[in-house]
Design a protein around this nucleic acid. Structure first.
Length: 275
DNA sequence: CTTGTACCCTGACCGC
DNA sequence: TGCGGTCAGGGTACAA
């Protein structure tokens, strides 16, 4: 369940090891992690021999920029990376390695994904530009102001929790931080996004940026499967106010935290202080 | 256009 | 001890 803070943590771990390196070879153990193109041979033809010029992030997607294309990684639920001197992953926990990328410095980047919901996507620069146009703004960017959040929430009639999860409105927010941000702003997750008044939008803007920033400072939340590079755990799980705390007392008002299902996902909130 | 639902996948967990 | 059922949720395809 890597969201923006987790993917950014992974990006910061990977960038110094990968930037400037050339991809010497790639072995795809499970073809179903290839999202496009879907065939090993075609995928390898685009990637092998290319230099990684930069490691970037957009929303929850990690981007390896190549000289003549973009290698996109979606970790989805259980995707992980580690780097080792090869040929075996240095982490015993990597029992479901789906792909191995050999670098020109002799090291190997291992992609492990138990459920294989995540994977890789190779795109031309032009195709990536089209793809990126579907994303909403980055909530931690300096230019992301209260009015931008208001605009993102005002479209349609979706509950504010669902709106926060919609990557075309705001990029990078997932199930954990959507619940946490709404609790921080004392807003009921079931309220239609467009029903929030100016003060509520302002509170949610502050709360969302604050929780994402603090999670990033703590290398993310290791609630279940997420690990940063080489098995490193996040530290934000102890700071969660509502996520995963059904039946426990709210740390702000003492009411029992409730769990409901919205759009097929769990939402945690405090009925006492999220009016 | 928006919104909701099924699906992908495996392992952890739970009740019996 | 085993076994079936449920759940975890990011993203997409598709229907309404």
């Amino acid at each position: 369940m890597p969201e923006l803070p987790e993917v950014e943590t992974i990006r910061r771990d990977l960038a110094p090891a990968l930037e400037g390196r050339r991809i010497a070879g790639i072995r795809v153990r499970h073809e179903d992690i290839l999202l496009a193109p879907r065939r090993r041979e075609e995928f390898r033809r685009h990637v092998e021999g290319r230099r990684i010029t930069a490691v970037d992030r957009r929303g929850k997607w990690l981007l390896f920029r190549l000289e003549d294309g973009v290698l996109v990684t979606q970790l989805r639920m259980t995707g992980r990376f580690c780097i080792g001197p090869g040929p075996r992953p240095p982490i015993a926990d990597f029992r479901h390695v789906a792909a191995e990328i050999d670098l020109d410095d002799g090291r190997t980047l291992f992609y492990d994904d138990v459920r294989r919901l995540g994977g890789f996507l190779w795109l031309t620069p032009a195709a990536w530009t089209r793809e990126e146009a579907r994303f909403g703004p980055e909530p931690l960017d300096r230019g992301f102001r209260t009015v931008d959040l208001g605009a993102a929430l005002s479209r349609g009639s979706a509950p504010v929790k669902n709106a926060l999860l919609d990557q075309s409105r705001i990029a990078g927010v997932g199930n954990i931080y959507a619940s946490e941000a709404l609790h921080g702003a004392r807003i009921d997750p079931r309220r239609p996004g467009r029903s929030l008044n100016a003060d509520e939008v302002r509170r949610l803007h502050r709360s969302l940026r604050s929780v994402l920033r603090r999670a990033l400072e703590n290398a993310g939340t290791t609630f279940r499967d997420y690990r940063a590079v080489n098995g490193r755990s996040g530290r934000f799980q102890g700071r969660l106010r509502v996520y995963g705390r059904e039946g426990e007392p709210c740390r702000r008002c003492g009411s029992e935290i409730r769990r409901i299902v919205q759009a097929g996902r769990s939402t945690f909130f405090c009925p006492g202080c999220q009016a």
